Simulated scan of single mutants.
Amino acid sequence: MRDSFVCVRITRLNGIDLNRFEFDYDVTWNSFFLDSQLNVYSRYGGRDHGDPEARLSKSSLLKTMKEVLDVHQLALKSDVNGREKFFQPIPKQPFRPHDIPLLRKNHGGCVHCHQVKEYRILQSYHDGKFDRWQLFRFPLPENVGITIDHEHGFLAKSVKFGSAAKDAGVKAGDVIRRINQIPIRSEYDIRWALDKNKTDQIDFELERGGAIVRAKLKPTENWKQTNLGWRKSIRSAPLPFAMRGYPLVRSQRAKMKLPATGLALKVVSVRGEGFSTNLGLKKLDVIIGLNGRHPNRTLNEFKSDLISRYDPGDTVRLTVWRDGKRVQLSGPFPDWFTEEESVP
């Protein structure tokens, strides 16, 4: 089937139209399926905080490729005005990495994917337009209650009870064909379409038993939240963390008589003003609880929890292990702030 495609590999984003080639810039690989005019039929790839390849499979890739070949033949047989329904919508105005002022000012040479994401975050902050939801891109289908069959790619394997999808009538075995009129040919298409949704309703077009069924999903508040801990771009989030630390391993926990599992982040330095100083953290403290919860976390996953749960001014409560005793700390979540204007 590969011989039916012309394959092109792009290893840098210099000069690339980001409006056309839009994907999750924290990932290390992504595929687009296009026609000769660069109209997008589908995109394939994506990951979550677990195994980087857990959402990918050979069979789902082949399924997407076959879908693209079939729809390409239909597009060729259609008149020019009738072809738009086969493509994913793309803004007509190109937008390239060097259209980001901070990137143009501070970056030379190869533009890597994560740098595009990070410069956009920094630019948004310095323009006074930052919103934490800019960090939560490409939400998972599970966020609306749908678990996808990863061997298929866009078939609902299960639907969670009480979720937006269940309440809207989505059923296990449904094939997702369109979301808000965007054609779906992969799980990554689903995530891109969900990412594009800006309203309190998401329109699904489903194939069920050979018939087309429509469902209107009403997602819950904060439905786009996902674990940011794996994302390289989290380092450019304008959160003045003001500390460095690392998770304790089992032997370190045992020496301090802490549980073998659960939250245990050791503070190795406190510097500047921000989260750590607001709460009164000290060097050598071990953070063992966040608002009474104690899940295992890396430092970046802990940051992700904070970004997900708190707005500036909200009270954060920590439990720390200090000098052999549990100590309760509390203080305000800091205002968004960063002095950074460049990305390594």
Rank of each mutant, 00 (worst) to 15 (best):
residue 313 G to W: 01
residue 318 L to I: 00
residue 296 N to I: 08
residue 284 L to E: 15
residue 309 R to A: 12
residue 320 V to C: 00
residue 294 H to V: 10
residue 283 K to T: 08
residue 311 D to I: 05
residue 307 I to D: 04
residue 335 D to K: 12
residue 323 D to Q: 06
residue 301 E to M: 14
residue 301 E to I: 03
residue 331 G to F: 04
residue 320 V to E: 01
residue 315 T to E: 14
residue 288 I to C: 14
residue 283 K to Q: 11
residue 294 H to R: 10
residue 334 P to M: 15
residue 306 L to C: 04
residue 276 S to W: 08
residue 272 G to T: 08
residue 318 L to T: 00
residue 284 L to N: 14
residue 331 G to Y: 11
residue 304 S to P: 03
residue 281 L to F: 01
residue 290 L to T: 09
residue 327 V to W: 08
residue 284 L to A: 15
residue 309 R to H: 05
residue 303 K to Y: 15
residue 289 G to L: 02
residue 296 N to L: 05
residue 307 I to L: 15
residue 287 I to M: 01
residue 284 L to P: 06
residue 330 S to Y: 15
residue 288 I to H: 08
residue 326 R to N: 09
residue 280 G to T: 07
residue 310 Y to K: 14
residue 304 S to M: 12
residue 310 Y to W: 07
residue 308 S to F: 01
residue 311 D to A: 11
residue 316 V to Q: 08
residue 306 L to M: 12
residue 284 L to I: 02
residue 280 G to D: 08
residue 283 K to A: 11
residue 306 L to E: 11
residue 313 G to H: 05
residue 308 S to L: 02
residue 319 T to I: 03
residue 326 R to K: 13
residue 305 D to K: 14
residue 271 R to Q: 13
residue 319 T to Q: 00
residue 291 N to E: 10
residue 321 W to R: 00
residue 335 D to F: 09
residue 277 T to E: 12
residue 312 P to H: 11
